[in-house]
Amino acid sequence: MREFTFGQYYPANSVVHKMDARAKLIITIAFIVAIFVVEGFFSFIYVAGFLVFAILLAKLPIRAVVKTIKPILILVLFTAVLNLFFYQKGEIIWEFGFIKIRDEAVRFCLYMAIRLILLVMGSSLMTLTTQPVELTDAIESLLTPLKWVRFPVHELALIMSIALRYIPILMDEADRIIRAQKARGADFESGNIFARAKAMIPILIPLLVSSFRRANELADAMDARCYSGGANRTKFKQFHIGLNDVMGVMSVVSLIMLIITTNAVLF
């Protein structure tokens, strides 16, 4: 059996876990804004401090949050190195043949790397403390005003919810099909890239056929359960804005203000 969740929800009994998912979503977006508002090196200390404080509040092991940057580390290094060599502003501080490194480039690279790392850690903090279902509900709730411009908010949320439900089922199904084709001598590991791509066909076709069959049956089941779209529908799960949510939003707003003030004073 396999458990698959987005951003690996990390269950714990903390203030952050109990916060309204909408508040968490807003705070995360504001946090990302804060990261990009930063102009001086100094302000990153505020942002990092805010993040560490939130991690402690969420009762998450720091290691678990740090681990989330692992998949993007290569991307961070790659862009940093590229920028280091090709950024054309500032004084040259080191030269070797045609390679020239400028002081502005060093600064720019460091900023970029720190921003990316903070961004990933910040958004991971949200997925680590929020169940995927809550998150889809929150997105639906926050997008509600878009209903006025006929944006299918409810449908979008329903699609996300169904996707979350069927990902583990389809992964199991894929696993089963892979085993069944292996039993028929299929080889997915050898050969060049084209041979391997071709070897996927006996997995992909049955998986597609099965997804369509499931989709058909699900549509019937939803119809049979009186589904008629978003209109006239009520919602069982409701959000409650609490004191913690207000405080959370206030503190992230303060963070942005602090950064802007610092920017103004220093530059």
């Binding site: 279902v133 329903l158 919810s161 439900r165």
Partner: peptide
């Protein structure tokens, strides 16, 4: 319906 997996929408 027949397959319980194909009639549930929530996690």
């Amino acid at each position: 319906f027949q397959n319980p997996d194909n009639q549930m929408i929530a996690t």
